[in-house]
Simulated scan of single mutants.
Amino acid sequence: MPVTHDFNAVSSTGDTPSDTINKLIDDALQQDHALKLGRDYLGASRLGEPCARALQYDYTQTSRDKPFTGQTLRIFEMGHMLEKRTWQWLQGAGFVIDTHDPATGEVYGFSAAQGQLQGHVDGIMWQVPESLEPAIKVPAIWECKSLNAKSWKHLVDKGVKVSKPVYAVQIALYQAYMEELIPGVSQNPALLTAVNKDTSEIYHEFVPFDAALAQTASDRAVHILRATQAGETLPRISQDPDSFYCRFCDWQNTCWKEIV
C-alpha cells in the first residue's frame, strides 16, 4: 500500500504545522520590530492617555514588561494597510488628501518643545467632492483609525470626544500645531474616518477645533517633559495595581516596583 502522510498532524511538541508557520511569522516580525529605533519624544497620538507616569515611561523608552507579541504587531500592520486602502477609497470618491508634504516628500507633521513633542498626521484634505461643497471647508486634518466592531459602534454612538478622548486630544493638537505650516487648518473641522475591521463599515465624523483641549494637552506635555528632565516620577493614575487601567498597562510590573 502507498504511504500516506497527514500533513496537518500534531507534532510531538503539540504544535500543528499551522502553529509552526505562525511562530516563524511572528518571530520574524518581533525581530524586525526589535531593530527599529524607538521614538525619543512625546507623541501627540499618546498625550490623551490618562496616566502621566505611563507617558513618562513611553517618553524615556523604558522597556515594556513584555515585548509586543507577533499578533499585536500584525494588528498594527493591518491598521496601516487599512489606512492606506481607506485613503485610496476617499481619493476615488473625489476627495483630494495629501499624506506627504509635496515640498519635502515627508509625512505631514509638527515638532515643538525642541523636538520633544511631535506629531505626524495621516493627511491634509485639500478638496472635497462637489456634493459636499460649500459646507465642508478645506484645508483640514484627515485622521484615520481602524477599530473592532464593539469599539467602532461605541464611537458611532457616542462621538469621538466621549468614546475616544485620546483621539480627540490627538486631533486637537494636530489642528493647533499644524496651523503654522497649513494656514487655516485650525479653522476647519478635521475629518475622522473610522473603519470597522470586522464588517468594513466606515464612519466619518467632522471634529471642530477645540482650542481649550489643545492647550490643556500642550500644558500637560510641558509638565511631563519638565518633571522627567528633573528626575521626578509623576503619580500613577490609580493606587490599585489591579485597577482596569493598570492591569492593561505595558509597564504595570515596572511601575509597581517603584516606591513612589
Results as ranks from 00 to 15, higher is better:
2 P>C: 06
3 V>S: 12
5 H>Y: 13
6 D>W: 03
10 V>H: 03
10 V>Q: 02
11 S>L: 11
17 P>T: 04
17 P>L: 00
18 S>G: 14
23 K>D: 15
27 D>P: 09
28 A>W: 02
32 D>A: 15
36 K>I: 13
42 L>H: 08
47 L>F: 09
49 E>H: 02
58 D>P: 00
59 Y>S: 01
61 Q>S: 04
67 P>V: 14
68 F>K: 06
73 L>N: 07
74 R>D: 03
79 G>M: 12
83 E>H: 01
87 W>I: 14
89 W>D: 15
93 A>Q: 06
94 G>A: 11
95 F>H: 01
96 V>F: 08
97 I>M: 12
100 H>P: 02
100 H>D: 09
109 G>V: 04
111 S>G: 04
112 A>M: 14
116 Q>A: 13
117 L>A: 00
118 Q>D: 03
119 G>D: 05
121 V>R: 06
125 M>Y: 03
128 V>A: 07
133 E>F: 11
138 V>E: 04
138 V>D: 07
146 S>Q: 08
147 L>T: 03
150 K>G: 14
154 H>K: 13
155 L>A: 13
161 K>P: 05
161 K>Y: 01
163 S>I: 00
170 Q>D: 15
170 Q>G: 06
171 I>G: 12
172 A>K: 01
172 A>Y: 01
181 L>F: 10
183 P>E: 02
187 Q>W: 11
190 A>M: 05
191 L>Y: 04
202 I>L: 14
203 Y>H: 15
203 Y>K: 12
204 H>C: 15
205 E>Y: 02
205 E>F: 05
209 F>Q: 08
210 D>K: 01
213 L>E: 00
219 D>R: 09
219 D>G: 04
222 V>N: 05
224 I>F: 00
229 Q>F: 04
229 Q>C: 05
229 Q>R: 12
230 A>L: 12
230 A>T: 02
231 G>S: 08
239 Q>T: 10
240 D>M: 04
241 P>F: 05
242 D>C: 13
246 C>K: 05
247 R>S: 11
254 T>D: 06
257 K>E: 15
257 K>P: 01
260 V>R: 14
